[in-house]
Design a protein around this nucleic acid. Structure first.
Ligand code: MN
Ligand code: MN
Ligand code: ZN
Ligand code: ZN
Lengths: 136, 136
DNA sequence: ATACTTTTGCAACTGAGTTTCATTTATGAG
DNA sequence: CTCATAAATGAAACTCAGTTGCAAAAGTAT
């Protein structure tokens, strides 16, 4: 799906900054931080605009946060039909110790876990660290 | 085990700051951030000392990092015999949406996951979000 | 084309974490 | 116990991620 349609379907105005950010996400197959985006886009857009774009994409279900022990937050495109109302990003994330990239293992589901009595689960987040297929 | 022994066993000098930080960790049953520690200890020690204490405890295997989608890092005491050489913190972490606390579910192991061909796993980190037993 | 609303740029700000260096403290040898 | 040495601490300054307020610019519907 092209950038214009993605924006329209999630109720966002079609602006150059959003288009540009989407293009960068499509260009890489691993999760990107604000500074990754800024490296490619700072000639065109202000850093605050990039932060705000990340927020609206998160909010509308265009991207999801990839939790990672690194200092700064990373984000990746949602694979399925996520929306403001509901994210279905129930897959495992993999962080490579060699290249440092974190990627979505979209086809590896997070197993359900038995928690102790009294606890209620709403969502899970699983990060696996190791060496990725490209670096191995 | 008392603070002095914990420090000695991990090859750290017995100082007031380290003793104080250990006491705060023992006082709470959930993971603490630097600012949580600072709230209790700022009258006695400099904030930089608290940062450095966290680093040496991490390094020596006295505490481990609790990964969490929150802005700042959190840490918890290691339950088993962890050391510089080896951490055995293979348990699930639980973050409560109500109270905001993250705790170690020390008795809930992270299951092993089948990753795609070509990937090598070295460690896993599982965060479950929901409502904790106290808030439920 | 116009009016209205959202988005953007810019500057200033906050908060987490780090670095440097001089001073103080813990520890082990004598 | 005293002293020498290495390690730990405090203080100030700094870096980097992320946020806020506000005026200007751009998108959208009529
Ligand atoms: Mn993902
Ligand atoms: Mn833990
Ligand atoms: Zn890799
Ligand atoms: Zn709770």
């Amino acid at each position: 799906m092209d950038a214009e349609n993605i924006l329209a379907e999630h109720g966002l105005r079609n602006t150059e900054a959003r288009h540009g950010v989407l293009d960068v996400f499509n260009k890489y197959d691993y999760a990107l931080s604000h500074s990754d985006l800024e490296k490619e886009l700072q000639k065109y857009f202000d850093r605050v605009t990039i932060y705000r774009t990340i927020h609206s994409f998160l909010d509308k279900g265009i991207i999801h946060k990839v939790i990672d022990d690194s200092e700064s937050a990373k984000y990746a495109l949602c694979a399925d039909e996520c929306s403001s109302d509901r994210h279905h990003d129930n897959h495992v994330h993999f962080k490579c110790a060699k290249c440092g990239n974190s990627e979505c293992l979209n086809h590896v589901q997070i197993p359900s876990i038995n928690v102790p009595k009294g606890y209620l689960v709403s969502e899970s987040n699983l990060l696996i660290e190791g060496v990725c297929a490209s670096c191995n």
